[in-house]
Design a protein around this nucleic acid. Structure first.
Length: 156
DNA sequence: CCAGGCTTGGAGG
DNA sequence: CCTCCAAGCCTGG
């Protein structure tokens, strides 16, 4: 069966998804709608409902490249939590800027929660718009939210 | 091959 | 506190 594409709403944005079964090929934020379905967990997540994104796979985590290892490390960050670029770099054994570059090119944001990776001194960056990162983090912080089924702790 | 990136920690004012 | 700067290193073009 072929790869499916579709989108769901998140605030003023649409989340475009290219996927097949539980494997996600591509996620991107855009202003316009893309007709078609998206995986239920992503739909629930965007709606602020309890969702388990870990049940989905991402092509970004496949392989043994540095970026794949970075994406896998990022996926271990729990919903509602955050780590710094430096933390991920230490885990993977690379430099913080390499982590930043990987986040900027993350082919599947949300599924690989790059919004949970922040700078040591502030929120860090986010393409295409920093406000999306702020909104995602705020939503995860809010209870009951998408983290409801994971929840607890991790806050300072 | 090489410039640049969603960084960081240290130095110096 | 704040600005400046180089180390560090993978990747797309």
């Amino acid at each position: 069966m072929a790869i499916v594409t579709g989108s769901c709403r998140f605030g003023l944005w649409y989340v475009h998804v290219a996927w097949q079964d539980d494997l996600i090929y591509r996620v991107r934020f855009a202003r316009v709608e893309l007709p078609g379905p998206v995986p239920e967990e992503i739909r629930r997540y965007c709606a602020g409902l309890p969702a388990d994104l870990t049940s989905l796979r991402s092509i970004a985590t496949e392989g043994d490249s540095t970026s794949a290892r970075i994406y896998r490390a990022v996926r271990t960050v729990p919903c509602g939590g955050t780590v710094t670029y430096g933390d991920i770099a230490r885990i993977v054994g690379t430099a913080p800027r390499v982590v930043g570059s990987a986040m900027a090119r993350n082919p599947t944001p949300i599924v690989v929660p790059c919004h949970r990776v922040v700078a040591k001194t502030g929120i860090g960056g986010f393409t295409p718009d920093l406000s999306i990162k702020e909104a995602l983090l705020a939503m995860e912080r809010r209870a009951p939210g998408p983290c409801a089924s994971e929840k607890r702790g991790i806050n300072r």
